[in-house]
Amino acid sequence: IRCIGVSNRDFVEGMSGGTWVDVVLEHGGCVTVMAQDKPTVDIELVTTTVSNMAEVRSYCYEASISDMASDSRCPTQGEAYLDKQSDTQYVCKRTLVDRGWGNGCGLFGKGSLVTCAKFTCSKKMTGKSIQPENLEYRIMLSVHGSQHSGMIVNDTGYETDENRAKVEVTPNSPRAEATLGGFGSLGLDCEPRTGLDFSDLYYLTMNNKHWLVHKEWFHDIPLPWHAGADTGTPHWNNKEALVEFKDAHAKRQTVVVLGSQEGAVHTALAGALEAEMDGAKGKLFSGHLKCRLKMDKLRLKGVSYSLCTAAFTFTKVPAETLHGTVTVEVQYAGTDGPCKIPVQMAVDMQTLTPVGRLITANPVITESTENSKMMLELDPPFGDSYIVIGVGDKKITHHWHRSGSTIGKAFEATVRGAKRMAVLGDTAWDFGSVGGVFNSLGKGIHQIFGAAFKSLFGGMSWFSQILIGTLLVWLGLNTKNGSISLTCLALGGVMIFLSTAVSA
């Protein structure tokens, strides 16, 4: 259960009878995928790494000078000259100064003066180019299975845990398959586009800190620079940016070097996208990844198990997540596992009318040892309800109150669905055939309105939902006002479609 501690969480529900669903994975976010007769899966884009970055340009932001020398000439005696002028490691300046009897010249006039100092770069920052084909995306998957609280967001041991898996995709191999043991396998067909235009970005490294910066900004930095990788004795261009020549006297000129420019660069980098280094690879934390999940090989585990009949206890007080759902960790005293956990939410304890829904599909106890633990997640209705676990006299209950409203949740879900469709863009549509167009249209309606429909009408039977949709269509056909007619027709059509397409 990876997503319960992530604030940016998206719930995606598969269409009834569908074998695939489109998701948008982004750094700092987590996606929970639910479908009829399929286990619930949490998917998170953990890291995006980039390798084989080529150094484009380096800037010196802290330097020192040494070996200063000057040469001067009297008027009419030609130009002052130093051998160091031809050495690229030196920074030199030529000027004219007033000369006369007082400073060793027989004539009054302008004399030539040249001053040089050896330039040494102490600290530099480097910009590297990123090729999209060198990106690698690491995705962690977790099935809502027989897990306890100690396994949440624990990325170790996934090789031997059938509840978890790690997959890596690249532009050259965008397809992967996550093996989930008894739950089958989940196929991923990803489109490795981060949403960032790397043709316009460089990877900047300064003092063990890293950013993504725009090329134009990078090339306009007014500091000494050299092109390409460091060859040991780089040729620094624009050395004068960190060196200041003071007022010249008759035979000498003082040279000083400016202080470190790291603070000024940090100020200019305010708002830039931060990154990290992992050995020789860069780690990015921006952008998104679009994936199509193929769920035809994914299956529920323990459908044929019998119900657990022994007593359950709450190991922890049920807690609310950031998303309005409830996490419950229970301990089973029996030894008759594997068995299914009898769990439901009810409005009252007399009729036990089921409300809400299970995020953890078909929760089971897989071990036959005593005191096995299991964590599950529920989506309670707004208002008061009861969490009921167990059967008969051994069942345990917990009162729950959820604040908020169904309308607010439906609106929030619609906005999130619209954002998801905007990110998917043209990849969500198939114009290759008439059937493809209608299929894409259905998927689009489901992406945007599916979660809201589930919130508003999830407790009704599909037949009642179709009746309401048919009534809206009838009202649309018999209303003389054009805008009201079109609105009723659209709402009725969407409702009829979703009542037959969205899983219960």
Rank of each mutant, 00 (worst) to 15 (best):
E136W: 14
K340T: 03
P380D: 09
K419V: 10
G5W: 07
G492K: 09
L258I: 03
M375A: 13
T49G: 02
D393E: 15
S142E: 05
G100L: 02
P174T: 07
D278S: 15
H266A: 12
H235Q: 12
S16G: 01
D348L: 00
C30K: 08
Y332L: 01
S503F: 11
K38Y: 07
R9D: 09
P381M: 08
K124Y: 01
N103M: 09
A280R: 14
D296R: 01
H398P: 00
P318Y: 06
T414F: 09
I359F: 07
F463T: 00
D161Q: 04
E240S: 00
Q465I: 02
G432K: 01
L300M: 10
G28Q: 05
T397A: 15
D200V: 01
T369Y: 03
L96E: 08
H226F: 03
F198W: 08
F431W: 11
N371A: 02
P132M: 07
G469V: 12
G5A: 04
V243L: 14
G187F: 05
V33Y: 07
V169E: 03
L196V: 15
N52K: 02
L25M: 11
L498W: 08
L352W: 06
K124T: 11
M460W: 09
L424F: 12
L258W: 08
D296A: 14
G279P: 00
K443N: 14
Y332P: 06
T179C: 14
T397C: 05
T120W: 07
E320Q: 08
T49Q: 00
K419I: 08
G29H: 00
R57P: 02
C92R: 11
V50D: 05
I341L: 02
T40V: 04
K409M: 11
G459L: 01
I466W: 11
T335C: 13
C105F: 11
W225Y: 15
K480Q: 07
L475H: 07
Q36D: 06
R175I: 05
T120Y: 06
T32Q: 04
I496E: 05
Q77E: 14
D384Q: 08
D98Q: 08
M375I: 06
G324F: 10
H323C: 13
W225D: 07
V167T: 02
G127N: 04
I396F: 01
G28Y: 02
V97E: 07
F497S: 08
G29K: 00
E177A: 08
A250G: 01
E55K: 10
Q261I: 10
W400D: 11
Q331M: 15
I341Y: 06
G28V: 05
G459E: 09
A410E: 03
C3D: 11
D197E: 09
L441M: 14
L223M: 13
S122Q: 05
A250R: 02
P342V: 07
A346I: 03
Y81K: 08
V114R: 01
R252S: 06
R299T: 06
P75E: 09
L135M: 15
I152G: 00
F314T: 04
S485F: 12
W217I: 08
R175E: 11
P174A: 06
V169D: 13
S368G: 14
S72C: 09
L212Y: 06
W236S: 05
A501R: 01
G493V: 14
S368D: 00
L180Y: 09
H288G: 13
D37N: 14
A333T: 14
S485N: 05
T19A: 13
A176N: 07
T327F: 11
K297Y: 09
A418M: 11
A248K: 08
E62W: 09
L472W: 05
Y90C: 13
D379S: 01
T327N: 04
T353V: 12
T88R: 09
S304W: 03
D197I: 09
V255G: 03
E412R: 00
L141P: 13
P222Q: 03
P132A: 14
C116I: 05
T254N: 09
G17P: 00
F119A: 07
Q261K: 04
K395Q: 06
W217G: 04
A117E: 03
T156L: 02
E44P: 02
V12I: 11
S146F: 15
L491D: 13
C60E: 06
A268D: 03
L456Y: 11
P234V: 15
L204Y: 10
H399M: 12
D71L: 13
I341R: 02
I407W: 11
V265M: 12
P380L: 10
A504E: 08
K283T: 15
E377T: 03
M15V: 12
Q447M: 15
Q89T: 05
E159M: 06
F497G: 01
S260Q: 11
V31N: 05
V56M: 09
A178L: 14
Q331F: 09
T369R: 00
E244Y: 01
G493C: 12
T160D: 15
E13H: 06
I1K: 00
H235S: 02
L180K: 09
V326E: 04
S72M: 07
G182D: 13
A310G: 15
V255F: 15
A319Y: 05
V243T: 11
A413Y: 11
V213K: 10
N207W: 03
N207R: 01
W462S: 08
T48L: 08
I1A: 01
W225P: 04
E62H: 08
N163M: 10
N481M: 13
W236H: 05
G182K: 05
A229T: 13
R420G: 09
H148S: 06
T40K: 11
M421S: 01
I387E: 04
G482K: 12
Q261F: 12
E62C: 13
L188T: 01
D247H: 04
S146L: 00
Y61T: 14
M151W: 05
W462H: 11
T160H: 15
V167S: 00
H323P: 04
G458R: 08
G228P: 14
V56R: 01
T267I: 12
G150L: 11
I496Q: 07
H219F: 15
L498K: 09
N371G: 14
P381G: 01
G324C: 07
T160P: 00
F314A: 00
N481G: 11
T267P: 05
V6G: 04
S72L: 01
T194F: 00
S405D: 06
W400L: 05
T309G: 11
